[in-house]
């Protein structure tokens, strides 16, 4: 039975370049009144944090990429980036619902939207 670990993941979801971001524009317009004259190009997105049980970091990233493309973002208007993927300190889990061993969760794109 292989050792498995639990990985802490942080994904950023952001609007693709060129997609209008009225939230970012509104925040940016408010900044000079607060004295933040040097802040530019504000874009508002989402940060999503979760944990994954996986055989190794590569497997955890694979699951994360699949999840990010199929659910966490709409690829028509959004990009994603995995900002953090690291072992949770001291955490080990029993085998079972563990990603990576058979790559069952790694068919990125096959089940996603066209």
């Amino acid at each position: 039975m292989p050792d498995v670990g639990r990985y802490e993941v942080l994904v950023e979801v952001r609007l693709r370049p060129g997609i209008a971001d009225p939230q970012g524009a509104t925040v940016e317009r408010a900044l000079p009144a607060l004295g933040f004259d040097a802040v530019h190009r504000v874009r508002v997105g989402k940060a999503i944090r979760f944990e994954v049980d996986a055989a190794d970091e590569r497997a955890a990233r694979s699951v994360t990429a699949d999840l990010a493309g199929r659910l966490l973002s709409n690829p028509v208007i959004e990009d994603t980036e995995v900002l953090v993927c690291r072992p949770v300190d001291g955490a080990t889990v029993a085998s079972g619902a563990v990603a990576g061993a058979h790559d069952v969760h790694t068919e990125a794109g096959s089940g996603g939207r066209p």
């Binding site: 009225p22 709409n74 028509v76």
Partner: peptide
């Protein structure tokens, strides 16, 4: 329907917010 890929494109927040 757009999220499901049954129609193209996407719907975004209104420009006016």
């Amino acid at each position: 329907l757009t999220e499901a890929g049954l129609l193209p494109g996407a719907l975004q927040k209104n420009r006016s917010l």
